[in-house]
């Protein structure tokens, strides 16, 4: 494996072994890494962690429902140019002044390898991923307005996260290294919590995890609490100075269950003997 920069996992991100080898495979093969998983399993954090471990700069591209593929490459601000031409504020003859590179475009132009995070790709239009295929394959794109092709100086590591809100096209999936983050089991969750609450009393942690997994098991929850909710909950519990025994009454439940129906459902089930 010499010759490859290996991702060994940074200090404050608890990755499972599978994830490490998958991330390495993506780096070596130069393919995008597609990370899927329940909300709160640390998909976005993964990109930050990989960038940190590689000592590379992270460029984030957060996808919204209106994001177009070309936005990640470049944006030609035609309206600004039109406006400037009307009022003569700036020199409009130079079209370059109105072309701004997006996160992928910047990554291609960077003088060293960077990590690009395409966050929540499933939020965009159904066709969005397909529109990026060629750019991700060839690591090059064409700026029509300039008739120039920008080719990546260093193939960036591309990490794509998805909450599985929409189906991704097959052609896109074929090109990705795929990783699914399953919900952490108790042992791994303990490690994750330790990172965020190093000084936490062991008894308290055990009690909180007992309650947390019990609540998650409640049948019919619309949004079962995830890792980030657990960490928030512990912060509140510690802040309030509660004893582990008090946890049996599920204090500050609103931190864990954020939907009204879930609250009703849970208190109903708890009400029963």
């Amino acid at each position: 494996m010499s010759g490859f920069e290996r991702f060994a996992g940074p200090r404050d991100y608890i990755a499972d072994d599978d994830l490490l080898s998958v991330a390495n495979a993506a780096i070596v093969l130069g393919r995008p890494l597609l990370v899927k998983g329940e909300p709160g399993t640390g998909k976005t954090r993964l990109a930050e962690a990989v960038a940190e471990a590689l000592g590379a700069k992270l460029l984030s591209w957060h996808i919204k429902s209106t994001t177009k593929a070309v936005d990640g490459l470049y944006h030609y601000d035609v309206v600004q140019r039109l406006n400037d031409s009307r009022f003569g504020d700036r020199d409009v003859s130079d079209i370059r002044r109105y072309i701004r590179l997006g996160p992928l475009g910047q990554a291609f132009q960077a003088d060293e390898r960077v990590v690009v995070l395409i966050d929540e790709v499933d939020k965009a239009d159904i066709e969005f991923p397909n529109d990026l295929l060629r750019e991700l394959d060839e690591m090059a794109f064409h700026i029509n307005e300039l008739d120039e092709t920008i080719t990546a100086k260093h193939r960036p590591m591309v990490i794509i996260t998805s909450n599985a809100e929409k189906e991704l096209p097959d052609a896109f999936l074929r090109r990705c290294v795929f990783h699914f983050i399953s919900f952490p089991d108790r042992a791994r969750m303990e490690k994750i919590v330790r990172v965020h609450h190093p000084a936490l009393d062991q008894q308290m942690l055990e009690a909180a995890l007992d309650r947390f997994y019990a609540i998650r098991k409640t049948q019919g929850l619309r949004k079962p609490p995830s890792t980030s909710e657990l960490i928030d909950w512990l912060t509140v519990l510690v802040g309030a100075g509660l004893s582990p025994e008090r946890l049996k009454q599920d204090p500050f439940l609103g931190v864990l269950l954020k939907q009204e129906q879930d609250h009703l459902l849970f208190s109903q089930k708890r009400g029963r003997p």
Partner: peptide, 14 residues
């Protein structure tokens, strides 16, 4: 390793 690698490269969905 083979198991993990194959799963990452050959599966498209969980």
């Amino acid at each position: 390793g083979l198991y993990v690698l194959g799963r990452a490269l050959l599966c498209r969905s969980e």
